[in-house]
């Protein structure tokens, strides 16, 4: 009835994006862009000085985030986003560190760095976009693929038990852990804002559709099918024991804020106050 669609418009967040690279490479129906949108809004609302923000990402679909934001951003080697960010934080404790990477980068190749960054409780915010497989390289089985989930390398269904990311992070010592899907975009934005304000290793797991590989292999061929599945099969349980939030294929996804505790963190609260040793 009313046609208001106009071209050549500017998006409110264009100031913080490298618009010459848009439209981005992510598939139609992928949720990484929505997570990035929620992160940028949360970052702007948090009032952090943008000149003191460093965004680090690894390799993979989600690793591309570093190339699209107009912040100090670093695209590191595979799995090494966390040690890179740790070094940045130790060298310059004033920086606000954000690690934005995928499950294959953070939990598989960088799994050891992940548990040790959580154990040391380095003051940083980690946003882990979980799409249940290795999307960029062709949809192979990853450590977060649910049991019986089909991928291009497990055509008869996965026989391995997947990682439960919030439980892993809680066991390793993270102080803030939340999980949302891209269907809960307002809650995701709120949680990212809380994680940015939290001192210590804070993790937000964002479950995203991957229609091209994971969804297509599991009878959810479009991003819309997957996001509908997230929307109608998620259950909010704040403060639940993280060992109970494992993801099963075709099961309910428990979302919410699971852990919010206080622990001494590095650098800042200990030693000379800035973490530097001379």
């Amino acid at each position: 009835m009313t046609k208001v669609i106009v071209s050549n418009q500017k998006h409110p967040l264009d100031t913080y994006l490298r618009t010459d690279r848009l439209p981005h490479i992510w598939c139609p129906g992928c949720g990484i862009g929505a997570v990035l949108h929620a992160f940028l809004r949360a970052l702007l609302d948090s009032g952090v000085d943008l000149k003191k923000v460093a965004l680090v990402s690894g390799i993979g679909c989600t690793g591309r985030v570093a190339g699209y934001v107009r912040l100090d951003s670093f695209h590191t080697t595979h799995g090494r986003a966390l040690p890179f960010a740790t070094g940045l934080k130790i060298a310059n404790p004033e920086l606000k560190l954000v690690v934005f990477s995928g499950d294959g980068d953070l939990i598989a190749i960088g799994g050891n760095h992940f548990i040790h960054a959580a154990r040391r409780n380095i003051d940083m915010t980690v946003i882990c976009v979980n799409n249940f497989n290795y999307g960029m390289t062709g949809g192979q089985l990853g450590p977060t693929t649910p049991l019986t989930g089909r991928t291009t390398t497990t055509m008869r269904g996965n026989i391995e038990e997947p990682f439960n990311i919030p439980y892993l992070a809680a066991a390793a010592g993270a102080v803030y852990i939340a999980r949302w899907t891209t269907a809960h975009i307002h809650s995701l934005e709120h949680s990212i804002g809380e994680a940015l304000a939290k001192k210590g290793f804070s993790l937000v797991e964002a479950i995203s559709p991957c229609p091209t590989y994971y969804g297509r292999m599991n009878k959810q061929p479009t991003g819309l099918d997957q996001i509908r599945y997230f929307r109608y099969n998620s259950i909010v349980r704040h403060g639940i024991d993280p060992r109970l939030v494992g993801i099963e294929a075709n099961g309910q996804i428990v979302v919410g804020k699971f852990v919010d505790i206080e622990r001494p963190y590095i650098p800042g609260a200990t030693g000379s106050g800035n973490g530097r040793t001379t």
Partner: peptide
Amino acid sequence: NTCSMVCPEFAIN
């Protein structure tokens, strides 16, 4: 603003 929030492409506002 929900359409803007869920849009992964920064296309709608």
